[in-house]
Amino acid sequence: MIAWTIRDGIMDVTLGREPCNEIGADMLTALEGLVRAADDLRPRVMILRSTAARGFCAGADLRELHRGLQNVSRLRAAPRLASFIWRIHRVMDWLDMAPFPTIAVIHGVCFGGGLELALTCDLRIAEKQARFAFPELRLGIVPGFGGIPRLERDCGASIARDLLLTGRSISAARAVETGLAHQLVPAGEGLNAALSTAEQLMKYNPWASAQAKAFAKKLPALRLAEEKALFLLMASRPGMREALEHFVNNSSAMPYLG
């Protein structure tokens, strides 16, 4: 599901869950394992990429969420969902503040929780066919893995509002214009660009690099706490279950638009 190699100080992490690295219970456990490994190994640079043909990550595993809520009362579902959210936030916060630079290589779909994962990385390299979106409102919820506070921090409230309220997807070229992605490369060239960037990052003293990162990138702790509370409130309402039911039974050509 998640594999990594470390060579010459570069930790090359690949997400490999078909069809598109959907984040459910198993993926969360794998991400927690990744964090433990990265904390032990302390690479000079981490590259995060996907081996799934469809893209970087399509976000939360909505089919698993739908199954998990079947025949479970709202009272019993709430603490389970809260536990998942607290665990995924711990993972995302650690990756966000990792004491070394991180690079996401993004191709294809980078939606919802996938975009939230990409937003924890310091640098994002987008292949030309990549698309970015926060389609969560179709489920009657806001993104719950820290995405909006991180998007606001990195790119400003204006683009965050656009993606959040419309649910539309934007291209890699537009992502670069807005600051959401830092480099635009042809399809299949993302890893090469990341390795080249990693070489550049490793020219600097690791301690100085870590200090610079800590200075230039702060955890938006208050907004993250607000997001967790709002997400859990919105997810406790019946609208999300109805929207999930609609999603899993949707045969439309663009079901993510709902």
Binding site: G108, K128, R168, S169, S171, R174
Partner: peptide
Amino acid sequence: SMRALELLTELENEFGVEIPD
């Protein structure tokens, strides 16, 4: 739907426009 996104990207690049999905 995923391949439709590829087409959308191709169209945006080809025609130099942004097409909200």
